[in-house]
Design a binder for these strands. Sequence first.
DNA 1: AATATTGTTCGATATATGTCGAACAATGTT
DNA 2: AACATTGTTCGACATATATCGAACAATATT
Lengths: 102, 102
Amino acid sequence: MSQLPHPLKKEITLTEVLAALGDPIRLDIVSHLARAKKEVGWGEFEVCVGKATLSHHIKKLRLAGLINHRKDGKKCYLGLRKEINELYPGLLKSVLKKTGHK
Amino acid sequence: MSQLPHPLKKEITLTEVLAALGDPIRLDIVSHLARAKKEVGWGEFEVCVGKATLSHHIKKLRLAGLINHRKDGKKCYLGLRKEINELYPGLLKSVLKKTGHK
DNA sequence: AATATTGTTCGATATATGTCGAACAATGTT
DNA sequence: AACATTGTTCGACATATATCGAACAATATT
């Protein structure tokens, strides 16, 4: 189901996670995902960049281990990886407190 | 006392803070500072890069608002800015849980 | 089979970043 | 005044990053 390459939990590193979060667009995506508490369709993100760039950011989040990224039919769906909270408890919570974005 | 430029608390942004933390060397420095719970002399950091590079990283941490950086005599001293915990409660705590570095 | 939809990848470009050694500046020491 | 210490800044370089439009691939629809 998850045809795209995802890092194993043990391969996820804190610095990569933080670097992935250290970009406004990616932080927005993660914030959106966290609030949704469920998968969100690729197309539902309102960002101010083209789809090639959005694809690039989503790939970074995936390779950092922050999100799941799967394709179903001709659409893609994204969701937060729960392993992040297991690995870094409280991290997303503290980060998301400050991400306006309702 | 703090001759070097530091951002005001209101100028500190989450993405810049996260980006600053998203580098192994800078994360080490912050980890060291957090464990010390006091100022640490510039020269006391054991990093695997030259002093020009260390200076660069320290500047990034300062400009991101993470640390205080002051000069006293011919030495510099660094300390964590307490405003970070006020702005992003729990962030450093969750980050530092995973930074080995006794 | 031809077309439409949904993203990814590619090539190009501009900017940022991490790194170093050398020069510089500020201070303290002799 | 000359020297030593402590970092910063500069110039150079290599690599990474963000961005775009266009080409491509996979799937679904007609």
